[in-house]
């Protein structure tokens, strides 16, 4: 197996809110290896994005967020790094792309300016070199007429093009890990495929690790090697793509799989739904967090939080009844 680049252990992130301190993620652990593509899936509000943004410590630590646990990138512990050194991880070693490229690109700076910025911060190169590199990057991410685009503002570009620009910004310093937070959610289906192809290509060509956060199981099945399923701030199941898709163990994962429409399903057949809704963070159930919505829940499930149990060498699930279901 390739060398591990990112190791997250027991990561908890809590926020100050009007209703006191709420834990958005609680004890998340996983690993990303060099050149690997890891998918993180779950409903909205399950803590996928919080996990990714906690790795780079993007939340305001002065008054809003508090991180505990460990995030190890190679040999440095990211949660302990002083802000100044942390800045050299962000964008240079670990890059991030976000869901909405229009709002994520600064509206008052040109596209070129924003790509050059990463380069000028992290690399000791001249403006002229940075400009050449930026144009090359625009070309690399498949933007036609890169010189013209270099001088344009984000609002002058199409949605797919903007997403490509954001990827160019993220790739500028050739990071070892790319965190893609729902990179295709806001795009048309055809553009989605193009953007995913681009990410996969960069992953293959540069040997860059990718953490793909999405709620689109289809994309995960096609592109990732490993999958993590999150529910209410916890990892409920993890495994190889084949494990998760062929024999999901956790009732939540099973529910997710069954709620995906299939081409071979009978006409008129109802899609499966997971009963109920995600509870609010201040109403987290006592035992297994999924118990209130789980069709197989027992007294034990409602009382006691299940351990994260190994099902096989590659698969783990957080359920009391993995052997019975």
């Amino acid at each position: 197996m390739a060398e591990s680049i990112l190791k997250v252990k027991d990561l908890c992130t809590s926020f100050n809110t009007e209703r006191g301190r709420l834990k958005a993620i609680d004890g998340v652990s996983f690993e990303v290896h060099k050149g690997e593509m890891l998918g993180i899936v779950g409903e909205s509000g399950c803590g996928k994005s919080v996990t990714s943004q906690s790795i780079l410590r993007l939340y305001d630590e002065k008054s809003l967020a508090k991180y505990t646990g460990e995030v190890r990138f190679h040999d440095s512990s990211l949660l302990d790094l002083p802000e100044k050194e942390m800045r050299h991880v962000r964008g240079e070693k670990i890059s991030m792309i976000f869901q909405d490229a229009l709002s994520s690109l600064n509206p008052v700076f040109t596209v070129g300016n924003q790509i050059m910025e990463s380069l000028l911060i992290h690399k000791s190169i001249t403006k002229k070199e940075a400009k050449e590199k930026a144009i090359q990057l625009l070309k690399d991410v498949g933007i036609p007429d890169p010189v013209r685009r270099f001088y344009q503002y984000p609002f002058e570009l199409s949605g797919g093009m903007r997403q490509r620009v954001m990827i160019a910004v993220a790739l500028a310093c050739e990071p070892e890990l790319l965190i893609a937070d729902e990179p295709t959610t806001a795009l048309d289906v055809t553009i989605q495929a193009q953007i995913m192809d681009l990410i996969v290509e960069m992953n293959k060509r540069r040997g860059m690790g990718v953490m793909l956060i999405t709620h689109d199981l289809g994309v995960v099945a096609e592109t990732c090697s490993k999958v993590i399923v999150m529910y209410l701030g916890q990892i409920v199941e993890e495994g190889l793509v084949t494990d998760i898709f062929d024999h999901p163990m956790h009732p939540y994962t099973i529910g997710l799989m069954e709620s995906v429409p299939r081409l071979d399903s009978k006409t008129g057949e109802r899609l499966h739904q997971i009963k109920g809704t995600v509870p609010l963070l201040n109403q987290i159930p006592e035992g297994c967090r999924f118990a209130p919505r789980c069709p197989h829940a027992t007294e034990l499930c409602r009382k006691k939080m299940p351990e994260f149990l190994e099902v096989s060498d590659t698969q783990k699930a957080r359920c009391h009844r993995i052997n019975e279901i």
Partner: peptide, 24 residues
């Protein structure tokens, strides 16, 4: 979002405010 993006790029806190935020 673009301030978050700028921070994710590694822009320093001072520069986030004086460059990215101020112009907006």
């Amino acid at each position: 979002d673009y301030i978050r993006m700028a921070r994710a790029k590694g822009v320093s806190g001072f520069s986030v405010i004086t460059r990215h935020a101020f112009k907006n």
